[in-house]
């Protein structure tokens, strides 16, 4: 379970808050989608959740462990798929996975079993001896998905995980996300692909201009929108999302004026 409380961040070279007082709880057993337009604060929030950025105020806890107080213990409890797979091109796929196994303290037997199973599932078992630099973007993404699960974490955090995946791999990843949630684990991912969010998320959060605009199920969002606009009843997530962000932009301009 992930819990974000009063999370705020202002970058040193900026005057406005990139993330402003975000409260969020991602429960075990659910797939939680984190949505927002470009520059909304999604990546900054993801970086604070994973311990890459220190928040100015607020806290993050992973399964009840405070990330700032005990970062190693907290980080051991999640697996993370970063959004940029172009970072490890000098390593072989097997070297990367072995590295992840060592970092997450996975026994030899467990890592062999998980690498074997997941690399078969994502159809890259035959290229494990190759250099990551020779992989396509989709293959790299699959490899990082496997690396993030090598310790079978209770929490799975994915930053734009569908980018670059072929239809089969995207389907497999969605299946895996559902399987982990069904097994009582928590899945938290950011995406621009609203269709994916609509199809697999149990709950979503929408962020814009650093503030959370909504947290709940898609049905709850629809009900909320119906209160302000009667036509919202038939809209899909894309329409609801655009209306919500549009309202937020108008409010923001109003505030500035």
């Amino acid at each position: 379970m992930l819990r974000l409380q009063g999370l705020s961040k202002t970058y040193s070279r900026s005057e406005s808050k990139a993330v402003d007082s975000v409260d969020l709880e991602v429960r075990d057993g659910e797939i939680f989608g984190f949505l927002g337009p470009n520059g909304a604060g999604k990546t900054t929030t993801m970086k604070m959740v994973t311990g890459v950025l220190a928040p100015d105020s607020g806290s993050v806890s992973i399964d009840g462990i405070d990330l700032a107080a005990d970062p190693i213990a907290a980080k051991l409890r999640f697996g993370y798929v970063p959004d940029n797979p172009e970072l490890w091109n000098k390593l072989k796929a097997s070297e990367y996975l072995d590295f992840m196994g060592d970092i997450y303290r996975v026994s030899t037997a467990d890592r062999r079993a998980r690498v074997g199973e997941l690399s078969e599932r994502f159809a890259i078992s035959d290229v494990l001896s190759s250099s990551i630099g020779s992989f396509s973007r989709g293959m790299k993404q699959k490899l990082f998905v496997i690396g993030s699960l090598i310790h079978d974490p209770g929490n799975w955090i994915l930053d734009e995980p569908m980018v670059g995946l072929d239809p089969q791999a995207a389907f497999d990843l969605k299946e895996l996300m559902r399987a982990r949630a069904s097994a009582g684990k928590c899945v938290f991912f950011s995406t621009h692909v609203l269709e994916v969010a609509q199809r697999i998320c149990d709950r979503i959060a929408v962020i814009a201009r650093g503030r959370l605009l909504f947290t709940g199920t898609i049905d709850e969002l629809r009900t909320l929108r119906q209160k302000t606009d009667a036509r919202a009843g038939d809209e899909d997530l894309e329409g609801l999302f655009l209306d919500l962000v549009d309202d937020s932009d108008s409010a923001g301009k109003g505030e500035r004026q």
Partner: peptide, 9 residues
Amino acid sequence: FVSRNFLAG
């Protein structure tokens, strides 16, 4: 390959 190359350290 998996059996041979993955070893905890």
